[in-house]
Amino acid sequence: MPIKHVTSLLAGVILSATAHSATVYVSDIQFVAIREGQSNNTRAVERGLKSGTPLEVLERSDSHTKVRTPDGNEGWVADYFLSETAVTRDQVVTLQAQLANATESKINAQNELNDSQSKVQELMQTISTLEDDNASLQERLDESKAITEKAQTIVSQNDNIAYQLESLKTQTQVAQDTMLALQKSTDQKWFMLGAATLFGGFLIGILLPLTRRKKVNNSSWG
């Protein structure tokens, strides 16, 4: 075998081994067709591959690369349709989508932050109102306690006054009973004194004439 053929064979094996581990992408062209051969006159195996579609490298030649599509179709495509990295257009679209998502997320986060701040303000206002209500209720409670203490003092004083009134009533009743007893005793004394006076007058009325008669008799006898 000529040395030239051996060298070409080895180079083809090396290129084939390297190609099996590589991935290329459809370049910045909207649609690409995969064909059975390296000529544009051969039948298209798959059409309409969009830019950025990853293709598995199967074999390389001077100006074409044999690839396998994501659907499993195998064919040749010109190298100028391929890129070793994801195409710029797809990267830009991806970045624009990520930027749009980030912007939307930022807007949503800002809206949520605004809502949270509004809720915090409402809660602070509610807390302030509750504190005012609590202070008012505490003031009313203190007033109620003061009124209760006054009422208890008045009740205590009324109980003491009622006891004093009851005691005065008892003392008055005792005084009335004593006065009645004294009045009865005085009436009895006056009655006895009147009776004694009357009896004494009666005796004097009887004895006085007798005494006069005795004096007269004595005078006569003398």
Results as ranks from 00 to 15, higher is better:
1 M>K: 07
14 I>W: 07
160 N>I: 05
188 Q>P: 04
5 H>V: 14
55 L>W: 01
107 I>P: 02
202 F>K: 00
159 D>Q: 10
54 P>W: 00
139 E>H: 09
61 S>L: 04
192 M>F: 08
79 D>H: 00
79 D>T: 03
163 Y>K: 12
142 D>L: 05
43 R>P: 07
120 V>H: 08
99 L>V: 11
92 V>M: 07
55 L>F: 02
196 A>T: 04
97 A>V: 00
182 L>E: 09
188 Q>F: 13
203 L>T: 01
189 K>H: 06
171 Q>T: 10
69 T>Q: 14
143 E>L: 04
160 N>K: 11
41 N>I: 07
125 Q>H: 07
11 A>Y: 06
215 K>E: 06
113 L>M: 07
117 Q>R: 13
205 G>I: 05
75 G>S: 05
159 D>N: 15
178 T>I: 07
54 P>N: 00
145 K>C: 05
127 I>E: 01
208 L>N: 07
213 R>M: 13
107 I>R: 07
141 L>Y: 10
156 S>D: 14
119 K>F: 11
69 T>S: 13
149 E>A: 15
93 V>E: 10
165 L>N: 14
195 A>T: 10
190 W>Q: 12
182 L>S: 14
114 N>V: 12
162 A>Y: 10
152 Q>D: 10
117 Q>F: 08
133 D>N: 07
122 E>R: 00
24 V>M: 03
119 K>Y: 11
138 Q>N: 12
181 A>T: 08
92 V>R: 02
89 R>Q: 10
154 I>L: 15
149 E>T: 10
3 I>Q: 14
133 D>R: 06
204 I>Y: 11
111 N>D: 05
44 A>I: 09
208 L>R: 01
166 E>N: 14
107 I>A: 08
169 K>A: 10
41 N>Y: 11
157 Q>Y: 12
54 P>V: 00
185 S>Q: 14
3 I>C: 07
88 T>S: 14
68 R>H: 01
140 R>P: 01
52 G>N: 06
17 A>T: 11
90 D>L: 15
147 I>W: 06
208 L>E: 07
80 Y>H: 07
63 S>E: 14
36 E>S: 03
61 S>K: 08
99 L>N: 12
